[in-house]
């Protein structure tokens, strides 16, 4: 994962976290009797989704790089 890919994934992860906070406060918080539990659950959900997205992007970038390297290796082998 390059620096720019990491930056992009990190920023989008942060946006996902903020999105979860909005969604939770508007739609889900009223379902909880205790506000403390709701905030805790919200943070866990936000962090899990944000981190999950970052790890997913990291794996996708690695796969893309591996595929590109394999393609180059195959081309070089063909030339030989």
């Amino acid at each position: 994962m390059s620096f720019s890919q990491g930056w992009d994934a990190g920023f989008k992860s942060l946006l996902i976290y903020v999105g979860v906070v909005f969604f939770w406060l508007i739609f889900l918080e009223k379902l909880f009797a205790d506000q403390g539990t709701s905030v805790l659950a919200m943070n866990i959900a936000g962090i899990a989704l944000g981190l999950g997205f970052f790890l997913y992007r990291r794996r996708a970038c690695k796969n893309e790089r591996a595929a590109a390297e394999a393609e180059i290796a195959a081309l070089l082998a063909e030339e030989r």
Partner: peptide
């Protein structure tokens, strides 16, 4: 690398 990314971000 990831440390630098998070620091700059």
């Amino acid at each position: 690398r990831y440390g630098t990314i998070f620091l700059v971000l």
